[in-house]
């Protein structure tokens, strides 16, 4: 790997807390201008990795380089060119929107004049122009998240590290954040985001790494991962005895997964499967294209968001 071209480079990184392994021999590399996702359920080690990139957690073993700086040794220097959206908002609630940006700009050593010069564009980007003098405590969850994003941009960073940027937001607010992140990618920013939303990962990420219990279980472009691991249609069946049904349709399926009371049937020819189920009362059948959720289910035998 050519170090100077990568925004982030991890090699053989390990971290344990006590005897619990949080990150296990993890290696990946993020190119400049790329949106890279760390996808996994809660407890997969995503936040720990994000904090390690910032130098806030030291790895037990392995090498980390961020924007060509060795981390954690020179994390402070790297952070000058990083914007961070943390998992939980840590805005100054009693300050106004503008004061939040002012105070944060000072942490980067920016003068009041320089901060005043960039604030209007940041407010516009975050669609918060009309909220400039409103206390943050009075903002909605989506607005707070957008302000956190604007705050992360105050130092004009090359790289954004976002830990679950849309968790806890309603769908409308989430779509607005996604749209804003795409604008940043068009501007050439590099984004590393952690998420447990398949849709978020599929929509935004050029490449992603699927994690389970701190281990990388797959890596690649979302569409390629889906093709490689699933590569056929999916039929979800609810409302019957999954084990009886799986015997019935087994011969026509490429693969079957049972999770809770749902049966996932992966079949190249879904019509053959539907024929078998015809006339059975009480079944709800949903046919859809495969997605990352199926990849995760296939690789781990369980659904991610449950």
């Amino acid at each position: 790997m050519n170090m100077s071209s990568a925004a982030i480079d991890l090699a053989g990184v390990r971290k344990s807390f006590g005897d619990k392994i949080i990150v296990d021999e993890l290696s990946f590399s993020v190119a400049r201008g790329e949106c890279f996702g760390l996808l996994g359920p809660n407890g997969a080690g995503k936040s720990t990795i994000a904090r390690m990139l910032l130098g806030m957690i030291s790895p037990d073993a392995g090498k980390i380089s961020v924007l060509n700086e060795p981390v954690p040794a020179r994390a402070r220097v790297a952070r000058v060119r990083i914007g961070v959206v943390p998992q939980f908002d840590n805005l100054e609630l009693q300050f106004t929107v503008r004061e939040n940006l002012l105070v944060f700009g000072r942490y980067f050593g920016m003068s009041a004049r320089k901060i005043d010069a960039v604030v209007p564009a940041l407010l516009e980007f975050a669609r918060l122009e009309s909220k400039k003098d409103v206390r943050v405590a009075e903002l909605s969850g989506g607005m707070k998240r957008r302000l956190t994003l604007a705050r992360a941009l105050i130092n004009d960073p090359h790289l954004l590290v976002m830990d679950e940027p849309t968790t806890g937001l309603d769908p409308h607010a989430r779509h607005l954040i996604w749209e804003r992140l795409r604008v940043l990618l068009v501007r050439g920013k590099t984004i590393l985001l952690t998420t447990h939303f398949m849709e978020e990962a599929e929509r935004l990420c050029d490449r992603l790494c699927v994690l389970e219990s701190g281990r990388k279980i797959a890596e690649g472009k979302p569409a390629a991962l889906i093709d490689e691991h699933i590569g056929c249609n999916v039929i979800e069946i609810y409302g019957g005895d999954p084990h009886e049904l799986s015997e019935l349709i087994g011969p026509y399926a490429r693969h079957i997964e049972v999770s809770g009371e749902t049966l996932f049937c992966y079949a190249l020819n879904p019509e053959q499967v539907r024929v078998q189920l015809r006339g059975r009362a009480g079944l709800r059948i949903l046919q859809r294209p495969p997605n990352l959720e199926d990849v995760f289910l296939r690789l781990t035998g369980r659904e991610m968001e449950k």
């Binding site: 910032l54 220097v77 943390p86 609630l93 944060f104 980067f108 050593g109």
Partner: peptide, 13 residues
């Protein structure tokens, strides 16, 4: 309030 956490993500030590 996680104020320090926010500051630690900037260039401050």
């Amino acid at each position: 309030n996680r104020t320090w956490e926010a500051i630690l993500s900037t260039q401050l030590t």
